[in-house]
Structure formats: C-alpha cells, structure tokens
C-alpha cells in the first residue's frame, strides 16, 4: 500500500481505516510493527494482501456482554454477511464503552477499531477488534458498507501479487483469491438494493 513509507515519516498522518469482511479478518495471523519505537503503529496483514492498523466495519450487533470484576469491559459481536467480528472495549476506550452502553442489540452498528491477533492458552488463535467507536446506524448505511467493503476487497484482489504487502501475504497465507471472490459474491447477493 502506498502510504507504507509515507506514514513512517509524516508521523501526524492518521492511519486510514481498511474495509474488511469478517471472514477475511478471521483468517489473519500476522501482526507486525514498523519501527522499533514503543509507539510505532502495529499492523495486521490481511490475507488479501494489505496491512491495516485500523479497520472500519458495519453489521448487526447480535450480542453485548459486560465482563470483568474490577476492570469492566464490554465484548460485542457484530455480524456481517460473511461472519462475525469480535469487538471489545475496556476502560482505555472510554468513548467506545459509553457508546456501547447506550446500544441494545439487535441493531446495525458501525465500528471503528484496531485489529489484534492473540493466541489463547489452548494455542488457538483469536482475532478481535479493540473499538475506538461503536455507533448505531441504519440499514442503508450497512448496505453502503457492504458495497464499499466488497469494492475495496476486490481492489486488493486485483492487485494481488503486485504489491509488497500482497507478495508477503501470498507467501504466508497462500491465499486462494478465487475463494475470496466467491465470498464477496455471496455477500453482495445477500443484500437487496432497489
């Protein structure tokens, strides 16, 4: 992606929010840091070949749970046409926590957040999103997002094996682009637009 090197120097440049479907995010396994600094941004490498420090997703909030004794945090599940996103927000994300507190499932929500990969005790891998904001939206916005996400995923597939990130992704994930085209196709045919 073009902002890879630019972002390194222009420290003030905000990381764009990559659009990704749940079924693709779930398959991500590589998380890396650019630079040695403690505050250097951390990226997740998506199977379709783009790094993301921040993602933007929409879907139906199906479950909301408050957990923790002293340090309360919310876990939320958001369903898109391809699968489920696991979202969390703790006391370091006070804005997102308050926003989640006002929302009752099932409703459509838009989530902005930072993806993270962790390995659980039984060595299974879990991909979740630390929310920066969670807000209720309408069905129309959800449909717009599905189109947007489909378009941007297709753009990534079209330039697959042509960018540094996607060559890396090809090496690590051995991505089958035909499967992703199928997923996008299925997602698009699930929504109705008059």
């Amino acid at each position: 992606m073009s902002n890879g090197t630019g972002g390194k120097f222009a420290g003030f440049e905000r990381e764009p929010a990559v659009r990704v479907f749940a079924s693709e995010l779930r398959e991500s396994r590589i998380q890396f840091k650019e630079g040695e600094d403690e505050k250097s941004p951390s990226y997740v490498l998506l199977p379709t070949g783009e790094r993301c420090n921040r993602i933007f997703l929409c879907g139906q909030m199906t479950l909301k749970e408050k957990r923790g004794e002293q340090n309360k945090f919310y876990t939320v599940r958001v369903q898109d046409p391809t699968g489920t996103f696991f979202i969390n927000a703790g006391s370091y994300q006070p804005d997102a926590m308050q926003q989640i507190a006002r929302i009752e499932p099932p409703v459509y929500v838009a989530v902005l957040g930072k993806p993270g990969i962790r390995t659980t005790a039984d060595s299974s891998v879990f991909v979740s999103v630390r929310a920066e904001s969670v807000t209720e939206i309408d069905l129309e916005t959800y449909r717009c997002w599905v189109l947007d996400c489909a378009q941007q995923t297709l753009d990534r597939l079209d330039s697959f094996d042509q960018t540094d990130d996607s060559r890396k992704a090809k090496e690590f994930y051995n991505t089958n682009t035909a499967i992703y085209r199928q997923i996008i196709h299925d997602a698009l045919t699930q929504i109705d637009i008059q």
Binding site: Q151, F160, T177, A178, H185, I193
Partner: peptide, 21 residues
C-alpha cells in the same frame, strides 16, 4: 446505495469463475 454499482460489483466478483485471477 447505488444499484448499478451493486450490479457491477457482483459482475466483478464473478469475473474469474473457478480460476485464480
């Protein structure tokens, strides 16, 4: 939401059936 865009994206996604583009 743009219906023509929706249709064209479906076509794009279906563009390489069974093959790896």
């Amino acid at each position: 939401c743009d219906a023509p865009l929706h249709a064209s994206l479906i076509n794009r996604a279906a563009a390489s059936p069974g093959g790896d583009a």
